[in-house]
């Protein structure tokens, strides 16, 4: 296939990715160094209150946004260097908190709070997803052939459901005196409020994520289990290997590429954790990096979006993505070079 045909086939797709992914990235990078805000002017304003005999008048200086001839607010864009990054990171306060060893103060800064949760969430759910996925795959593989289809159907439901709706459905089971909270209260014989502190919300979020992603891992591992070499399993039995040894020395090494694949996908996706915050409406207690950008982008009461802060926060989030991708990309690059 010569270059021109290749370009004709790939062109539209590359064009769309450049226009809607690469270009926004560049513009986010640029925005993070600029701030757009209304120009304020100071005007003297006289306010008079009617009084007996004479009005009492007060003159004060008020700063108000300048308006152009259409009555719209004039804005100006200004280069501010790293100011937005400083606003997001609050380095002095963060540094003081770290040197005091006071975790509480550090977690009052949104960015660090979000980073802490995002990382904990990613690292705790990863082994759970791989473990549960592997377990479910083995269970499905053990089941009679006739029930596998329906079981896979049921297993796919948590994976296919709209994430926000999935979170909400878990939320409704636990919120207030939802039936599962009521059940736990009855069992432990004490009052439980799951949405009144951060750590219980975090546990619920992780439970949701495992429920949502484990089926995906299970389907992939199940497909991998179909290709395990039956002869080597059989010879292992004859050599006296226990079930556990067979799993450890034959099945898991065979599934290793798939385990790496699932882990990679899961790392990428759970680093973007977002829907959980919305569905549990937990912004008072727990926030994530992507939610923070979303929050900066949502108009506040005055209708302003803090675009530059959102951009700075996005660029900081990107650093994590890059770190996450370095290892697999190096591997792919080596494979590619080895392949030629």
């Amino acid at each position: 296939m010569n270059f021109r045909t290749f370009a004709a086939f790939v062109g539209p797709s590359v064009f769309m990715m450049l226009l809607f992914i690469a270009f926004p990235l560049v513009s986010v990078f640029k925005q993070s160094f600029y701030v757009t805000q209304p120009i304020y002017e100071t005007v003297e304003k006289e306010t008079c209150t009617p009084g007996f005999l004479t009005q009492s008048c007060v003159t004060e200086k008020v700063s108000q946004p300048k308006l152009d001839e259409h009555g719209e607010i004039i804005t100006q864009t200004q280069y501010v260097g790293l100011q937005s990054y400083r606003n997001v990171l609050e380095p002095e306060r963060a540094w003081r908190a770290i040197s005091d060893g006071s975790w509480h103060v550090l977690s009052t800064i949104n960015f660090w709070k979000a980073l802490r949760f995002t990382l904990t969430f990613t690292l705790i759910t990863l082994p759970l997803v791989v473990g549960c996925g592997l377990g479910i795959a083995i269970l499905i593989n053990n089941a009679a052939r006739s029930i596998r289809g329906p079981v896979i159907f049921v297993s796919l439901l948590p994976f296919i459901i709209t994430p926000v709706i999935g979170v909400l459905s878990i939320n409704w089971l636990f919120r207030g005196d939802g039936i599962l909270t009521a059940m736990m209260e009855w069992w432990l014989n004490r009052d439980i409020a799951l949405f009144a502190q951060a750590w219980t919300i975090e546990i619920l979020m992780m439970l949701y994520r495992v429920w949502h992603v484990a089926p995906f891992a299970a389907i992939i591992f199940y497909a991998g289990l179909q290709t395990v070499n039956q002869d080597s399993l059989e010879s292992a039995v004859i050599d006296g290997a226990t079930r556990w040894q067979r799993l450890k020395y034959i099945v898991i090494p065979h599934l290793m590429p798939l385990i790496i694949f699932v882990s990679m996908i899961h790392l990428m996706d759970s680093y973007r954790v977002f829907e959980e915050i919305v569905g549990f409406s937990s912004q008072g207690y727990v926030i994530s990096l992507q939610w923070l950008t979303f929050d900066y982008l949502t108009p506040d009461q005055a209708g302003n979006r803090s675009i530059s802060r959102a951009s700075a926060n996005s660029m900081l989030t990107m650093i994590g993505v890059v770190i996450l991708l370095i290892l697999p990309l190096r591997r792919t690059w080596r494979d590619h070079k080895g392949g030629h």
Binding site: S27, R272, L289, T293, V321, L324
Partner: peptide
């Protein structure tokens, strides 16, 4: 690499 990007990053680029 693009697949790993958080979508909010891109939206921050589109909005203005």
């Amino acid at each position: 690499v693009f697949r790993a990007l958080p979508h909010s990053v891109l939206v921050a680029g589109y909005l203005p």
